[in-house]
Amino acid sequence: MNAQSAGIDFGNWTTQVRKGLLELCIVNLLARGELYGYDLVKKLARVKGLVITEGTIYPLLSRLRKTGLLKTRLEESPSGPARKYYSLTRQGYQDRARLNAYWNELNLGVSGLVEESEGNDD
């Protein structure tokens, strides 16, 4: 059986589509206000179709902080260790605007193409 007859590798395709979207989701979640790391991960996990492995968010948050998009602060917690809260920096807000603009443009174009294609099918 060759690759053409096997059809598209859906898992790999969705992975490629999701690449890059996680940063977009994070900066948009944090644009509403600071979030505790655990809460942020749980909110991302609830985004439909994103299908994240929860542990992978922590390295990503660390890298975004190092690149200057995010900042953190610690707050004492009565029920456990001190909590780390993440929020956007000025640079983070600026990058969010650029990411959203691109995403909206892409989404609009691709959605129109899909709708047009599906309309022709009917």
Binding site: K19, T56, P59, R63
Partner: peptide, 15 residues
């Protein structure tokens, strides 16, 4: 998976 390399979303390349 957690400490996936290269891109932040590298772990998602795994099925």
């Amino acid at each position: 998976q957690v400490a996936s390399s290269e891109t932040p979303l590298g772990s998602l390349s795994q099925p």
